[in-house]
């Protein structure tokens, strides 16, 4: 239960961090909040030769709106996102999702970038950000690139981040007026890893017809996924209990979630279907009321 030895570096700038990550003769790992990495190291499931502690890089800790888009620095703590009035007002889906991440002590230490780079398929923020069509800015010594969430997550605990790249920012587009959101999941105990969940958005025109919908699923696949066909079926008419149920059934139609000692794949599929149907109606209600969350 003690980590294997490693070399420790605490860079003073992003450039220094990138130089350390590019070192040829090392197996470096970025240390941000450490809430997923350190347990893996304590179990010796992860044995990096070099830890690059980015906690000194205050320039990566921010939440701001630029134009219509939200920009979240990679080192922003979950607790800061949870308490941001800007986020709660304009991107309430993120506020609802982050409250379900771990426990208060975890949210005080864990970072947004760390959660994304860890890419756990049952993590809340990757799924919420998939529903919001977010992108991620990654940097290396050769420059920066922005990846759409669907390019970033490639498998269970796997992202398209290269070993010499650092995730520096999350970029979230604005939601259209008349949009309601809902994040929901089921856990056996408060703060546990969820057995299934979803993030949905529903946009309505003034007559109550759905103009756009997003349905992102948690625990359904090795990465967050969107139920594109189920989303498309909702568009063009009001969201009703019947259409929400149909859309939810469509969303889980081709899913084959993992079976493990916590739940069977079949149970997970039924669970996600119920959560999607319920969440669509909640999001519709919020869209009508104009109440963000």
């Amino acid at each position: 239960m003690k980590p294997a030895p490693f070399r420790y570096e605490k860079p003073r700038s992003v450039e220094q961090a990138l130089a350390l990550l590019a070192a040829e003769d090392e197996e470096p790992k970025v240390l941000a909040g450490g809430q997923s990495l350190v347990p893996l190291m304590n179990f010796r499931l992860a044995r990096p030769s070099l830890l690059v502690d980015i906690n000194g890089l205050a320039e990566l800790s921010y939440i701001r709106r630029e134009g219509s888009r939200l920009r979240i620095g990679a080192l922003t703590r979950h607790a800061v996102l949870e308490e941001s009035p800007l986020v709660e007002r304009h991107w309430p889906l993120l506020t609802e999702a982050v409250r379900l991440v771990g426990h208060p002590q975890i949210r005080n230490a864990g970072t947004i970038g760390g959660s994304l780079a860890h890419a756990d398929p049952t993590a809340e923020l990757p799924v919420a950000l998939a529903a919001l069509d977010a992108g991620f800015v990654v940097r290396s010594r050769s420059g920066a690139r922005e990846l759409h969430w669907s390019e970033f997550f490639v498998g269970q605990l796997q992202t398209s981040l290269q070993p010499d790249e650092l995730l520096v920012e999350t970029v979230v587009p604005a939601l259209p007026a008349g949009t309601g959101c809902r994040f929901d999941e089921f856990t056996r105990r408060h703060g546990d890893f969820a057995l299934g969940g979803c993030a949905v958005t529903v946009s309505l025109d003034p007559d109550g017809a759905c103009t756009r919908a997003a349905i992102a699923l948690l625990g359904a696949a090795p990465t967050p996924i969107r139920a594109a066909r189920a989303e498309a079926e909702l568009v063009g008419r009001p969201v009703t209990a019947e259409s929400a149920a149909r859309s939810a059934a469509r969303a889980v139609q081709d899913l084959d979630p993992t079976s493990d000692l916590h739940a069977s794949g079949e149970y997970r599929r039924d669970l996600i279907e119920s959560l999607v149907a319920r969440s669509l109606l909640t999001a519709r209600g919020r869209a009508r009321e104009g109440v963000p969350a």
Binding site: Y8, G34, V38, D53, A79, Q105, A109
Partner: peptide, 13 residues
């Protein structure tokens, strides 16, 4: 001032 788990932090941090 913030409660955190001391088993998930290295002393150097």
């Amino acid at each position: 001032g913030s409660p955190v788990r001391s088993c998930l932090l290295f002393a150097v941090q």
